[in-house]
């Protein structure tokens, strides 16, 4: 199938590349089909492009690449929604919010995206009982780094 994208023009897609969010994303519950695209020079950043609306696209990244101690429990409700049986099937991403200055870009650690790599079903999990924040700096400012302060302590 051929789809129109926000950044990549028209893209030819195989059905098996489609990532389905049975519940959509938070605030975009009616948009359920996405595809993950990327450009080599932008790796490890990737694009989560909505198939049903070319204007909707997100930048995503594996959080372990900049927040190595990121951790949370995946509850039974979430695993059942995407038929997740084995931890090794998990592909984990977080959504990035860019700024004019790329060094100020932030990642939403409070609403991670979990993809079941086996069936390509995905969900945006809402971490209700965590101190993670929606605007975690990917490149912490010098001060934050010097103090060695975890960013999520700000929210507490």
């Amino acid at each position: 199938m051929k789809i129109t994208t926000r950044q990549f023009g028209e893209v030819e897609l195989n059905e098996e590349e489609i990532v389905t969010f049975p519940e959509g994303l938070v605030g975009l519950e009616d948009k359920r089909r996405y595809v993950i695209l990327g450009r080599p020079e932008e790796e490890p950043f990737k694009w989560l492009q909505c198939i049903d609306d070319p204007e909707i696209a997100f930048i995503i990244i594996d959080p372990m690449l900049f927040a190595g101690d990121y951790a949370f429990d995946i509850d039974d409700e979430t695993t059942s929604k995407i038929n997740l049986a084995r931890p090794e099937d998990i592909l984990l991403f977080v959504i990035v919010t860019l700024q004019d200055d790329f060094r100020k870009m932030t990642a939403n650690l409070l609403g991670p995206i979990i993809v079941n790599g086996r069936n390509r079903r995905a969900i945006q999990m809402v971490l209700h009982n965590s101190n993670y924040i929606t605007k975690h700096r990917i490149f912490p400012s010098k001060n934050e780094e010097a103090e060695g302060k975890p960013q999520n302590s700000k929210q507490a």
Partner: peptide, 26 residues
């Protein structure tokens, strides 16, 4: 929920540029 909804909106409307630079620095 509301915080995540707001952030999803902000992310989808953010200026999607400078990614290659960010990738290089990372």
């Amino acid at each position: 929920f509301e915080r995540i909804r707001e952030e999803n909106l902000a992310a989808s409307e953010s200026p999607m540029k400078g990614l290659a630079d960010a990738a290089r620095v990372l």
